[in-house]
Design a protein around this nucleic acid. Structure first.
Lengths: 355, 355
DNA sequence: CTGAAAGCGCTTACAG
DNA sequence: CTGAAAGCGCTTACAG
């Protein structure tokens, strides 16, 4: 027997080789591994012994997935580089929620970035389903190809769109609520710090032209909510949801003592924390001379003693909803779109304006 | 022609259907898509037109990967849950570095957790290669199966082991350096806060028994380095590299005013930040009454005005080295193991003991 | 430049 | 409980 096994070194052993050595057919060997069909204990044992002898590690996943039509892999497409996505606690919470639900069907999580150049990966990977995080399913070419492939697609906060299931968030209504809170406190001169407008992620003042061409659903909805209350608010767009970006934006909006807003609405907590940092550097008291609101409800280390006024969104829940929807779709069901609601949290970073 | 296309609705179109509609052979249609072989422009155009007509989105990745033997997917196995891994800046830096290099070969990143129950995924996923982060390749069963499969394996800070390429770190020497720094300052009563000892991640005082059975390479090496200078140091093991865990450990080591160390060596910066937080809560001055050193050299938000004395490790570089090694191995080369060195950074959290 | 044929390694009805 | 056969959808030498 060990002679026989030696003839198989070099190339990886196959199920056929194992079957041959065990003296059974391919089908029986296959059943012995999958545990699906009825195989006698003696036969199974013979097959497993042959596998051990040949150093066979089990059926090749590639062949199995061609045959069964399933790869056991669910793709997650993010818009930015891996490094940036992983710095955003909201994105991590989403991934966490997704992976919790996918664990149920034992699927792996394939991280794909859609930064333009690497679009090939999106089309060439064997995936059973795909979750889009913050991508615009309507516009994107590589995503169009996925839709054509007909695999289940779920978009978290994407543009609602025909064949893509959307997990939504009340971005506009929630931001409007925060803006109204500032209005009610007496603020009239309010500035905005926005998330990126599109995949290009250009930092700078938000001009009407750029605003007209914004394609990021989340950014545009939160912007609309703020504009519902403060239509003419000055705005500055950050390169991403990072504290440093908030600080840069804060300085851009606050450095000139003659043109300072009394409040700033930031589209994320990290941006808000950065704005507060900029205010500290400029010796502007928060909330005495500047009110700040965020969005997300994530814990920002080092913000203490500030308790940020913000909109708490259920990020892990959203991820779980996306994961659960994928599981249902793979099961042939057609789940309904889901909308999530944020909760307004009144912290100690907002107060009536001092002037 | 549109009648012909209609007959294909329902099932996904295949390359064969496209070839038939275009009036060419399978091989020619395949070449038209891959762009590999010589195909006349006219023929290619006819194939692509047929594909458009049938709504064919390109060759099925599953079939292609069975045929070519490559899936374009590289697995990354982490030991903990997704959520925990993504909270650790070092792990994110490693992933970032890996993904930078994998972008070169346009490979996707499949995140797999090795928390015990989900081990099936590790064996069943089609991957061209695997990077192990902080797993012990020697002990783990699911990883043994990967080795048997014969795909390239790279371990970051794993136990050096036969057929697994190791990307190392001078954990022991570096920690010894930090311990010596404390010794030179005059500290004799030093306590340790360690990372988890094994996959079970149990929090609590480090007993000799538990220490004897520790399996996490990184933890054990850093522990050995500290013991080189302070053989009898009391130690407390955290559940993971988080600020809160450091705070818990800090309280465990500092709450009793009669048995307080004059210095604490934490095995990560996040743990060190937590220890400092605990000290603040107990009104113990750092570095006046307590010196604290960390490991990693990551920016911890909210630590200011402290500048942590720590060992700066090149995490992104390590990730890149792992990614580059994978690329080489997939190319048939046999790269050498690499060892990385940490740099000692003297901050303002260490000083001579006050007693 | 194009086609006919083999085969990647498996799973799954279908018989027996 | 076991086997013979078909086929998942593609790519790749090999001819021509």
């Amino acid at each position: 027997m060990s002679d026989e096994s030696r003839t198989h070194t070099g190339a990886r052993p196959t199920l056929a080789a194992v079957a041959q050595l065990a003296g059974v057919s391919n089908s029986t060997a296959s059943l012995a591994f999958s545990g699906t069909g009825p195989v006698s204990d003696a036969t199974r044992e013979r097959v497993l012994a042959a596998a051990r002898e040949l150093n066979y590690a089990g059926p090749d996943p590639r062949a199995r997935s061609l045959r069964t039509g399933r790869s056991g892999i669910v793709g997650v497409v993010i818009e930015e580089h891996v490094r940036d996505a992983f710095r955003d606690p909201i994105k991590i919470a989403l991934l966490d929620g997704i992976s919790q639900e996918l664990a149920v069907i034992d699927a792996g999580l394939l991280i794909l970035t859609d930064t333009g150049e690497a679009a090939g990966r999106i089309q060439d990977a064997s995936m059973d389903a795909v979750v889009l995080i913050g991508c615009s399913p309507r516009l994107d070419e590589s995503i169009a190809a996925l839709r054509q492939r007909g695999i289940p697609l779920v978009a978290i906060e994407g543009d609602p769109s025909g064949d893509v299931l959307t997990i939504g968030q009340d971005n506009r209504e929630a931001t409007r609520l925060a803006a109204q809170h500032l209005w009610d406190l007496g603020h009239r001169d309010v500035a905005l710090v926005t998330l990126p407008l599109d995949r290009d992620r250009i930092r700078g003042p938000l001009t009407p032209e750029r605003e007209a061409h914004g394609s990021s659903n989340t950014t545009m909805e939160r912007l609309a909510g703020a504009r519902d209350v403060f239509p003419d608010a000055v705005a500055f767009t950050a390169r991403g949801s990072f504290v440093e970006e908030g600080t840069i934006a804060g300085h851009a909006l606050l450095d000139d003592p003659n043109h300072r807003p009394t409040a700033i609405i930031a589209q994320s907590d990290l941006l808000a924390a950065g704005v507060i940092r900029a205010a500290e550097e400029l010796e502007i008291a928060v909330p005495g001379d500047l009110s700040v609101v965020g969005f997300d409800g994530v814990r920002v280390d080092g913000l203490w003693p500030y308790d940020l006024t913000t909109l708490v969104q259920p990020a892990v829940e959203k991820g779980r909803a996306a994961g659960a929807a994928i599981v249902e779709m793979l099961d042939g069901e057609a789940p309904e779109p889901i909308g999530f609601t944020s909760e307004f949290h009144t912290g100690n970073t907002t107060a009536p304006p001092s002037r």
